[in-house]
Design a binder for these strands. Structure first.
Length: 950
RNA sequence: GGGCGAAUAGCUCAGUUGGUUAGAGCGCCAGCCUUACAAGCUGGAUGUCACAGGUUCGAAUCCUGUUUCGCCCACCA
């Protein structure tokens, strides 16, 4: 097969980039080629990322795409840098969240999840998990994520269960896990305890009730307490005042009668009571309030639970028993009012805790739970960041990290759920003091010997317990696996700052405690994606606009009057969710990834505008068309010619210029990626590909690439062709981490064209500087480019030509010279070197500025009429019809005014003696040079203006 | 109540240790289907860099205060 037979001609290549087909092709190719399987470079440094496992609660949304894309960019970058890159994928069983979703679904089908029993429910949950997990995996795949799927993990699978048992036992044996009766956050809807971090607090409008507790001896008066929760009074065991509060000094020690009951309780003093709040008297309900619990512990008060698990009053509620807590509140208030014991009700802003999953109002509940002792673990995690063992990016989150760890309370890890890791504890029936903790498979020996005498704890562990082990449980811990030795600790953790405590801090704590090592070297915290929701102003209040109407508004450049938008956290109820796959279909995954990467500045909210995705879609298409053009103008170039590199004798200044620009781009991209400055990385490429390569180099190359053989020397033509291919090939490699599909497509296209081999087939190694470039079977395993040398002379020369061309174009544009009218120009240039440059570039200038003829000389006799522009001492005359004289006057005046503004600014600076005395010499010199240049140009322009004479 | 972050063009955002006449994309205006690309090309307009002080020869950038917005943490019932 020869290269001509397999070459793509222009006609075969579509004018617009066909994202869908290209994505499918390379996804398949990468998968079958096993390119993402770690361990294929045993001598290379490992680079590891473990995915923050998405919850198997449903499908991925835009919020997930951000971390996945960033991780993939990092992994692909390091893979190309030669690392043994490993990205471990996986999913999280998400205890409460999943159990909640599965239960809801069952209820919708008319089934009662609780009545089904544990086994049957778990069966349903596993079914759900399979479905959700498959969806998530295929979504991650279609994003182009280069995960090593052979190492796929799930937080509830058997290897992870082994890790959970081992970790639990380890902590248990070290006394870091204990069980006790404490007040915990109870979710009365899902009927489980929650950790402190799983409770979201919201300000809500409530009432503060002042209730009179009459003296028990019947004497006049009593204690008036202020409370937001009158329904808990059945659990009161005391009334407390501040010991310093003189108003109540005399009543301390007296007894009062608890309203609506026959019970009597005492008035006590405790320092936590704030005298200036409410009445200065507080009812003490140790079983239902955290403060009161602490107070009760201090003073040895009894704990009286008055609620059932689903937050109905129990037998202590007397005639109110069986009522739901909110219903009971109304009833109790009504009864108190009737008895004249309700002295006052006032509106009051309270903070209500809600379950972060079920949104149910949390009820503090006294119950037997398992806890992790956090203090020693937290100290170690804090020290790790303080000492630089772990680096947090952006640094501003360090403060948050320390504050949380310094104030952390013990972690309640038991959950009264079914979906999760069973707590590996067995109790001896009838003797609760005898317990066994077992980390092996099946039953502990004692239990196996007498199964009937033991029962396993019915609770499961908090999801975050297994998540906390993730960086090493995915590596096979507690087994001493090869992966653990090679890939752990991991390189970086990429996640949102919203789970810094839930997850990140806990991984650090567990990892140091259990493995003695950090879980990751860097923590990169990204922003959270917000969506655009629309509102219509309607009689003073805002009305949410959803559905199709909102989609229409998305497309409108200007919103109709009365409609406004807000950026808000994406949620289904707001109707502002963007489906990543839909965006992928609309604009292509590459464009989506590029937009996300460019948006990934650190630690903020990200207002994702779809017009930005569209902008990058256009960029991908631009890149694609540059490739099409390259294929066109390099027809006939052989692999051997490419491998040998551009013939030096044929190189022109623009070839050296683009190579120099490329060197800077390579350096910029590399530096940005190493520093997690993703927006810089994308910005550098965008500018280089579009502004430098397409707008200038390819345009400059046209004159040679298309010229007939007798007009341009063969070497020159070949040099331009090879340069086009070299630069394009390097661009592919630079783009590959963020834009894997399009770059692979183009790269393989060049490879196939030159070598006549299909993707995946080995390309013959040829001699020459470029001989090895296409050796790898895929771009994703090609080496990251090394930065070449910058060429200052070439950069200056081309900058000069660019200014000249732009000046001529600007004149044409402002004077409205039609494009089909080629103009004649004269250039007055005193410097011989520049004249020489202009001579060699005349064909390029003609092509770029639509020029018919040009005359270059050290001195030009001013023509009768021409539009003129002076740039850096060079005068360009653009010969135009005389009727443009007036237009030219206006244009010159504007140009001169612009220059004068700059001159004035520079003059003011230089006139300041302090500036010339104190500013660094280089800065002053630069300013002076700038002033001289502008002054000379302005002078010349003024001369042209007066010569116009109209 | 504490802490953190943000405020730059109509919109979304850059602006690295203070040194330009403050940038990009989208949108806008004018002109172009110039044989890679109309998802394009060329030219153009657009800013009290939230506000007020201060430091400095010089501030979008550093300091102080103010305002607005967002987030996190916190046991006044």
């Amino acid at each position: 097969m020869t290269s001509t037979e397999t070459s793509n001609t222009q006609a075969e290549l579509p004018k617009t980039f066909q994202a869908e087909a290209v994505e499918a092709r390379w996804l398949d190719f990468w998968r079958s080629g096993n390119f993402f399987r770690a361990g294929q470079r045993p001598d290379a440094d490992p680079y590891t990322i473990v995915i923050p496992p998405p919850n198997v609660t449903g499908v991925l949304h835009m919020g997930h795409c951000l971390p996945q894309t960033i991780q993939d960019v990092l992994i692909r970058f390091h893979r190309m840098k030669g690392c043994d890159a490993l990205w471990v994928p996986g999913t999280d069983h998400a205890g409460i969240a999943t159990q909640h979703v599965v239960s809801e679904n069952l209820r919708r089908e008319g089934r009662d999840p609780r009545a089904m029993g544990r086994e049957a429910f778990l069966e349903e949950a596993w079914k759900w998990k399979e479905k959700s997990e498959n969806t998530i995996k295929s979504q991650i795949r279609s994003l182009g994520c280069s995960c090593d799927w052979t190492r796929d993990a799930f937080t509830l699978d058997e290897p992870r269960a082994r890790a959970v048992r081992a970790a639990f036992k380890m902590l248990f044996d070290r006394g870091l896990i204990y069980r006790g009766l404490y007040l915990v956050n109870w979710d009365p809807v899902t009927l489980t305890a929650l950790s402190d971090d799983e409770v979201d607090y919201e300000d809500e409008e409530g009432m503060l009730y002042h209730i009179r507790y009459p003296f028990a001896d019947g004497s006049k008066g009593g204690a008036t307490v202020a409370t937001t929760r009158p329904e808990t009074l059945f659990g009161d065991v005391a009334v407390a005042v501040n010991p310093q509060d003189e108003r109540y000094a005399s009543v301390v020690g007296r007894m009062v009668r608890l309203p609506l009951t026959e019970r009597e309780i005492g008035i006590i003093a405790d320092g936590f009571v704030q005298s200036d709040f409410g009445t200065g008297m507080v009812k003490i309900t140790p079983a239902h309030d955290a403060n009161d619990f602490d107070c009760g512990q201090r003073l040895g008060l009894p704990q009286l639970n008055v609620f059932t698990p689903d937050a109905k009053l129990n037998e202590h509620g007397g005639r109110f028993a069986g009522m739901d807590r909110f219903e009971a509140r109304r009833a109790v208030v009504a009864a108190l009012k009737e008895q004249g014991l309700l002295l006052k009700e006032e509106k009051y802003q309270t903070r209500l805790g809600r379950s972060y999953r079920s949104k149910a109002v949390i009820e503090p509940r006294l119950s037997e739970q398992w806890f992790v002792r956090m203090k020693p673990l937290a100290e170690r995690a804090a020290a790790a960041v303080r000492e630089g063992d772990i680096r947090i990016l952006p640094k501003s989150y360090e403060g948050v990290w320390f504050h949380w760890l310094d104030n952390v309370r013990d972690w309640c890890i038991s959950r009264q759920l079914w979906w999760g890791h069973r707590i590996p504890i067995w109790y001896r029936k009838g003797d609760p003091s005898r317990i066994v903790c077992f980390d092996g498979e099946g039953l502990p020996p004692e239990v196996a010997a007498e199964p009937a005498a033991w029962e396993q704890d019915t609770d499961v562990l908090d999801t975050w317990f297994s998540s906390a082990l993730w960086p090493f449980s995915t590596m096979g811990w507690p087994e001493k696996t090869g992966d653990l030795a090679r890939y752990f600790p991991t390189s970086v953790l990429v996640t949102g700052h919203d789970i810094l405590f839930f997850w990140v801090a806990r991984m650090a704590m567990m990892s140091y405690e259990i493995t003695g090592q950090r879980p990751f070297a860097d923590i990169f915290l990204h922003g959270l994606i917000f969506g655009k929701s629309y509102y219509r102003r309607h009689e003073g209040h805002l009305e949410l606009i959803k559905g199709a109407e909102a989609r229409e508004l998305d497309e409108m450049p200007k919103l109709p009057p009365g409609v406004e938008f807000k950026w808000e956290k994406m949620s289904k109820s707001k109707g502002n969710v963007i489906d990543p796959l839909e965006m992928g279909r609309l604009y292509g995954m590459d464009a989506l990834r590029l937009a996300i990467t460019a948006y990934a500045s650190q630690g903020r909210t990200i207002d994702l505008d779809r017009s930005r995705i569209e902008g990058y879609r256009n960029f991908v298409n631009k890149f694609w068309n540059a490739a099409r053009f390259a294929m066109m103008v390099t027809q006939g170039v052989t692999a051997k010619e490419f491998a040998a590199g551009a013939p030096p004798t044929g190189l022109r200044v623009e070839d050296r210029w683009i190579q120099s620009q490329l060197a800077r781009a390579v350096e910029g991209c590399t530096r940005s990626l190493e520093r997690y400055e993703f927006d810089q990385y994308v910005g550098t490429l965008y500018d280089f590909v579009w502004k430098q390569f397409c707008d200038w180099y390819l345009e400059l190359a046209k004159t040679r690439a298309w010229a007939a053989a007798d007009v341009v020397a063969r070497e020159s033509r070949l040099a331009s062709q090879v340069t086009v291919l070299e630069v394009l090939e390097t661009i592919c490699r630079l783009l590959a981490p963020a834009l894997p599909f399009a770059s692979e497509e183009v790269w393989q296209m060049i490879r196939t064209r030159l070598y006549g081999v299909e993707a995946g087939s080995p390309a013959p190694l040829l001699d020459g500087p470029n001989g090895a470039v296409f050796t790898p079977a895929s771009l994703c395993v090609a080496p990251w480019p090394a930065a070449g040398a910058a060429d200052q002379h070439a950069e200056d020369s081309v900058a000069y030509l660019q200014e000249l061309v732009t000046a001529i174009r600007a004149i044409r544009g402002e004077m409205a010279v039609p494009l089909d009218m080629k103009v004649d120009i004269r250039i007055e240039e005193r410097e011989p070197a520049r004249r020489a440059l202009l001579d060699t570039a005349s064909a390029q200038i003609a092509s770029l500025a639509t020029v018919r003829s040009q005359l270059v000389s050290a001195a030009i006799a001013p023509p009768a009429f021409a539009a003129t522009q002076v740039i850096r001492g060079t005068t360009v005359f653009v010969m135009l019809p005389d009727e443009l004289r007036t237009a030219e006057r206006q244009r010159l005046e504007k140009e001169i005014a612009h220059l004068e503004k700059g001159i004035a600014a520079a003059n003011a600076k230089l006139a300041n003696a302090d500036f010339t005395a104190r500013a660094p010499e280089a800065v002053v010199a630069k300013e002076r040079e700038k002033l001289d240049r502008m002054a000379a140009d302005a002078q010349a322009m003024r001369a042209r203006l007066s010569a116009l004479g109209c």
